[in-house]
Amino acid sequence: MNRSEFYEGLKGGVIIAISSAPFAVLFGAVAADNGLSVMEAGLMSATVYAGASQLVGIELFGQHVAPWLVVLSVFAVNFRHILYSAALARFVGHFNPIQKFFTFFLLTDPQFAESVRRGESGIGISFPWYLGFGAAIYFPWLLFSMVGAFFGRMMGDPRTLAIDVLLPIYFLGLVIGFRRRPGFYPVVVASALGSMLGYHFVGSPWHVSIGAAVGVVVAALLPLPKERMPMTAASETET
């Protein structure tokens, strides 16, 4: 285990942990509000470990939606991870199966964004770095969601403290982090339109998968850049 890589990962992850702490507290508070105990909220953060979908799941659970529909909605909100793990494949081919298990278990939005940035910059992704980055997010996420569940009923209306605007702003920050990529603007416009149409005509949470699909299809149809490096999946994923 390369210690300096691990610590570098930890250091990078701490920033994410701090900025996601309010959401962990928010999740815990919403969970308590919908009848979950501190232990149940903790179990959900420890095993699902996907902020937006945890909030969607809790919201639907609170509305007494059928359990299979709650699970399906969690799957829909998390559908993007299928595309994340596909995009990450070329950078983690050298990991062993156990390392891959942890890699994919810890694959959250910021973990993906940071890993791709690191992979594409040429530094490469080592398992100690990845694990350090993930651990720095995972344990605070677990801790703060239980804190949120514990104090949930005392917090009152999240609107008063403007907690509710933090989540979309956080996602907005991740979006603009990609603004230098080719095709960024057409993809964002297409996804925004697709998600709004999906929201009005199909309903939440399907607008997430519908909007994403529209954006991805537009990206696939955009003209290919003239010069590009040939890349084979086999050479980069089987080592």
Binding site: P168, G183, S191, A219
Partner: peptide, 30 residues
């Protein structure tokens, strides 16, 4: 993706667009 031998360029372009596409759908309705 590991079951496939190569990634076609358009598919790669689509995969590269995934994060921005998905995250936008969480931002736009808000």
């Amino acid at each position: 993706i590991t079951r496939m031998k190569t990634i076609p360029p358009r598919m790669e372009q689509a995969l590269n667009a995934v994060p921005a596409a998905v995250l936008t759908t969480l931002v736009a309705p808000a």
